[in-house]
Amino acid sequence: MKAIGLIIVVLVGALLLYSTEDFPSWGDPASPASVHVAAHHLKKAIPETSVPNVVTAVLADYRGYDTMFETSVIFCAGLGCFVLLRLFKKRDDDSYYRHVATGITLHIKKDKIPDASSEFERIDTLWTPYDLIVKNVCRILAPFVQLFALYVIAHGHHSPGGGFQGGVILGASVILIAISHDMRTALGRISEKTVHILMAVGVLIYSGIGALCILMGRNFLDYAALSRILFTDKIEARSLGIFGVEVGVGITVMAVMISIYNNLSSEGRQDEGL
């Protein structure tokens, strides 16, 4: 197998190298890729959409339809992990509890699990150390992380950033809680049901804005149609439409990141994990 692999790799590599002779050299400003469609986008981005970050303008407007499906791909991944891994059976092994006042860890047989009380706290089977500093630092940090994420989403028009990046940071803030405390704490903050509904809501916002444009009498995702309900001119409406879809993207990406983390780290049981 290794020999076959090596032969295939060398052959394909040689073919690829041979084909580079017709390519423009690196960084050539006159290459076809730089002068045809992309140049048009660079020239027209501000007059047509009033978004100075051309990457955002192309991503969410000129090629906004791709981005809608890109968000759908993320959604599919979240749903795929759920479908493949989620087990609705409860784990029936023994559990571990900590006596809060003394810090003693107790191993409790499966049929003698105590009712919820403030004296005992359940801990993961694969024991994680109880660390006051890590827990509190992460808890205090989480809101700032989320604030930064909102900034990244909202400032995508003027600087690198946008829905995907901001959404990932938002998701990371929840995952941080799950890692520093345990999964049950994170699930207490944002439950599985909420995550799944948010996943759908985010993409619905995106495609819903697209469908709204049809209802307002123009083509799918033609944000200029929204100028009548946003009370702005058509160019400003495009800018606002881009912001609307970025918010949708952010919500979906956040929810999917949390869902994938929860399912992967707990092998689909969503009770304890990493």
């Binding site: 890729a33 469609v37 992309a38 986008h41 660079l42 051309v54 990457v55 192309v58 991503l59 090629r63 791709d66 981005t67 890109e70 791909v73 993320i74 599919c76 991944a77 979240g78 795929g80 992990c81 493949l84 891994l85 995907f164 994938i260 399912n263 992967l264």
Partner: peptide, 23 residues
């Protein structure tokens, strides 16, 4: 800007594929 936009999409696709593959 165009290749960057395309690659944002491709990155997202590869992350999603990786997630499903890990599952």
């Amino acid at each position: 800007p165009l290749p960057h936009v395309l690659m944002l999409t491709a990155i997202v696709v590869s992350v999603s594929t990786f997630g499903v593959a890990l599952a």
